[in-house]
């Protein structure tokens, strides 16, 4: 006979530093949010029904999961307290600390630093209980599945920046619908066309940016590179760089190469690819014969 026991809920506190709330809203986009929330007791979340109000956080005695969104920055207030004080208080109390979004992870656009990292450098809070989920914003699936792993008591393998490898072991380039154009080095020279690779001229950082955006898609339907917008490298410690809509080149050669690909290997391969003219890829996709 099957017995159904109600799984226990883990308590969660979602704390915001210097932020735009983008990760809060990204998480709300998770299509199966209700199922995830079934397993969590929300002590505090900026928008979801919560047990405590922001001014009552000092009353919270225990929290299993601390989610931090936003950068660490002097002067940021939550309720009547300094964000930094609350952060330190709950890092101490929590069993897991999930830093969601590039601000909480590295400092990003708004933080003086992240929680466990300042850029790539560890802070005093570089602790085994921290899981870093960078992105601007973090994809809802990254937040939800990481939470689920914690709820299930499973540990995720993380890299040296405490990021789950199953998310950040890929590059955004993997799965890009424009891959054929990258392979055969057919460049898009202007925006607004579904043909062509955005890496050579239009600033796309997908080949050296970590994340599985093009495998799980955004909002279940598309991705930036899918619609023709360059990847802006939002999961990386150096986000945002400058001149995001054009590729930095030296004498026509990209300043940065695909992740882990040596310069000579890259130039050899692209030189070979460029030597052929693939008629199909030079044409518009739906052009009539």
């Amino acid at each position: 006979m099957r017995t159904s026991t109600k799984p226990s809920k883990l308590s969660l506190l979602w704390l915001q530093g210097a932020t735009c709330n983008g990760n809060t809203h990204s998480f709300l986009n998770y299509p199966h949010l209700e199922a995830v929330l079934e397993r969590l007791e929300i002590l505090y979340h900026p928008l979801l029904p919560s047990r405590y109000r922001i001014g009552e956080l000092e009353e919270v005695e225990k929290c299993h999961i601390l989610v931090v969104e936003g950068g660490v920055r002097e002067g940021v207030k939550r309720g009547n307290r300094e964000f930094k004080e609350l952060l330190e208080l709950f890092i101490e109390k929590a069993q897991w600390v999930l830093c969601v979004g590039s601000c909480a992870v590295y400092g990003g656009l708004f933080g003086e630093r992240g929680v466990a990292l300042k850029g790539e450098e560890p802070t005093p809070f570089y602790l085994p209980k921290v899981i870093n989920i960078p992105g601007c914003p973090a994809h809802p699936d990254w937040i939800a599945t990481t939470l689920w792993a914690v709820v299930e008591g499973r540990e995720l393998i993380r890299d040296h920046l405490l990021r789950p490898k199953e998310i950040y072991g890929y590059t955004v380039h993997a799965g890009c619908p424009r891959n054929e154009y990258f392979e055969w080095k057919v460049d898009a020279r202007e925006f607004g066309k579904r043909e062509g690779c955005l890496f050579y001229e239009l600033g796309c950082q997908a080949p050296y940016t970590r994340g599985n955006c093009n495998q799980i898609l955004w909002n279940e339907v598309s991705s930036k590179t899918g619609v023709g917008m360059p990847c802006i490298g939002c999961t990386e410690p150096d986000f945002p760089q400058e001149n995001l809509f054009s590729t930095k080149t030296y004498m026509g050669i990209p300043a940065r190469f695909p992740l882990g690909v040596p310069k000579r290997a890259y130039l050899t391969m692209t030189g070979v690819a460029k030597s052929f003219k693939i008629e199909r890829l030079e044409r518009r996709l739906f052009e009539e014969d």
Partner: peptide, 21 residues
């Protein structure tokens, strides 16, 4: 997201139009 690739935080509307086709 169908036009902008993602929501929130797309920059698909660029100076001069939109990147999507």
């Amino acid at each position: 997201a169908l036009f902008g690739g993602q929501y929130p935080h797309t920059s698909y509307a660029i100076a001069g139009g939109v990147v999507c086709d």
